[in-house]
Amino acid sequence: MEFEGPSQSFVDEIIIAENVHKWFGEFEALRGVDLRVKPGEVIVILGPSGSGKSTFIRCLNRLEEHQEGRIIMDGIELSHDIRNIQEVRREVGMVFQQFNLFPHLTVLENITLAPINVRKWTRDHAEELAMKWLTRVGIPEQAHKYPGQLSGGQQQRVAMARTLTMQPKILLFDEPTSALDPEMIKEVLDVMRDLARSGYTIIAVTHEMGFAREVADRIIFMDAGKIVEENTPENFYNNPKEERTKLFLNQILQH
């Protein structure tokens, strides 16, 4: 079966984050994060909990508001202008740790609601594309069930189909496998690998070391609201530059 990849982007750097700061009250969650991503790059962000990695990618589609610095997504700067935010959100898909499917709608309705109402597609077109993506993530037979009737892995795959049917250029993964039972992680990772190879620009926060090593173009290690190390997967695991990275790798590889 043929699949469309992401739609073409006409900018050199699809994500530009410059000196991004973010405070939660007194607590400074991000202390000047800089990141530049080219179209089609796959980036994995690693780091201990509380290091600001989730906060950072949630700033990229303005689920959180950054207070200092600049974020430019696909040529549009995120500011207070609500129209800019809406435009960016149309092009940036996000997959959440807790799936966040809409429990009162069937799987198909979950997927087609945004394309019909935000992209203003016809129902037929939206449903056709939705079924295509459901087939690609391997669960077309579940289209008319409700999310509550599916397993965790299936729900996360529906969430991915929902995001992808909107035809985003950029995908943000916020620990998509952390809430899953171990035997369901593989089915979700398989889909993520598939997407990484078909040209999407991906930023993933995950603890799946195998996935990071296999598909990432770059690995970014964050701690205490800053990027500590930026490296290729090869060098990151075998030859890390920073002491903090070594300590982190020791801790997670030991158990």
């Binding site: 966040n100 809409f102 945004a114 909107m166």
Partner: peptide
Amino acid sequence: IPKGQYEASDALGFNGSQKMRFIILPQALR
């Protein structure tokens, strides 16, 4: 209604009134 429902609808690009009409109110009213 869990916060995730608001976030998911924001992330999909719904505007405020669509978010209420399609996602939040149907669940809240039930």
